[in-house]
Design a protein around this nucleic acid. Structure first.
Lengths: 185, 185
DNA sequence: ACTGTAGGCCAACAGGCGTTGACATTCCAG
DNA sequence: CTGGAATGTCAACGCCTGTTGGCCTACAGT
């Protein structure tokens, strides 16, 4: 009995996050996660039940969006751009979602949930009393630019995009987000 | 001897494209492709040598970008937006690249090649005599918006984005592409 | 000191995968 | 009519996967 149950459990979770983020769902194997954690694969099953449930635990996720009503209306684009890039680099959860969401239906569903429950309300706060349908479109458009930037920068690693500084990336996409969220229709 | 060698070969290729586009690289199995084509898996190997070479054949790809010098300078954003969406819906090759590029290094490399050899020249033509590094950044930024739109619309299927008409999508992202390619730095 | 239990390991399973080589069938050339 | 390519099938291989059940082993409570 080396470690406490909770310690091993969180160790497994940490290694699983790394693997899912690096390899995607299919290529991230339970055996590899177990090897990274220095334990037997059977233990992973004991603690998480199945690969699918391990995955679900690994991508529990909060965007942690700030209250957009606290920033000046013409600064929401820049504020969101900065927040997203920082959030992306803070831990690997968003990379997991992006890498796995493209082939794994459950992960894609999770991304739609994050969009609906976390991004939508922020867009609604910016929009004020605009029609609901219009707000959903605007939030979706913001998602296309944010996810596209993340895809090219962190996953596909397009040289000019992954090489540019965070501030420069923010400077470029902030006006785009500003227009999508608060600009003319 | 039912069909000619070339017929079956292209039948295999067509079914392989469908599978790769729908499932990504790992989940698209040679056995499934063969079953779709109504033949034996061994035949796929005979004609393509390995799964990797089948994949390479399946994503041979030409963006078919129009000559941007033929469109007015303030219309390049709209022209490219329209071209990309039409190109995306014309066949499944771009979806293959996007679905597999996220987990498969070879596919990611292929995407970087497409960016460098096909998108870059177009951006250079728009930019005129701007510095090369600046052009690469601008082409990369355009890629973030185009790929982000495709990701949300065709792969993740974010409801408001996948439901909007092609023209509406073009109307929204055209100004973004315009600014990235030809706007102020 | 003894025992129950929690933490961990081992070996094996059933199934799917890419890949291979030997065999069958069909067609065309001589 | 016959032989040899061309086209296609079959069965099996070795490997890796998620998953399971039984077996250790070290600690905690009495």
């Amino acid at each position: 009995m080396r470690r406490s149950s909770e310690e091993t459990k969180s160790e497994i979770l940490a290694r699983a996050r790394e693997r899912f983020a690096a390899d995607g769902y299919e290529r991230a194997t339970i055996r590899a996660v177990a090897a990274d954690a220095g334990i037997d694969p059977a233990l992973v099953m004991r603690y998480f039940g199945s690969k699918e449930r391990l995955f679900a635990a690994a991508c529990a996720f909060d965007l942690q969006l700030p209250d957009v009503r606290a920033v000046p209306r013409d600064g929401v684009g820049a504020a969101l751009a900065r927040h997203f890039l920082e959030r992306w680099e803070a831990d690997e959860t968003l990379t997991i979602l992006l890498r796995t969401g493209v082939t794994n239906p459950a992960a894609a569903e999770r991304m739609r949930e994050v969009y609906a429950s976390q991004l939508m309300p922020a867009a609604a706060a910016v929009a004020g009393d605009t029609a609901q349908a219009q707000v959903r479109v605007r939030a979706g458009l913001a998602a296309t630019q944010v996810l596209g930037m993340a895809l090219c920068r962190y996953v596909l690693k397009f040289p000019p995009i992954s090489a540019m500084s965070r501030d420069e990336a923010i400077r470029w996409i902030a006006p785009t987000l500003q227009r999508y969220l608060a600009g003319a229709a």
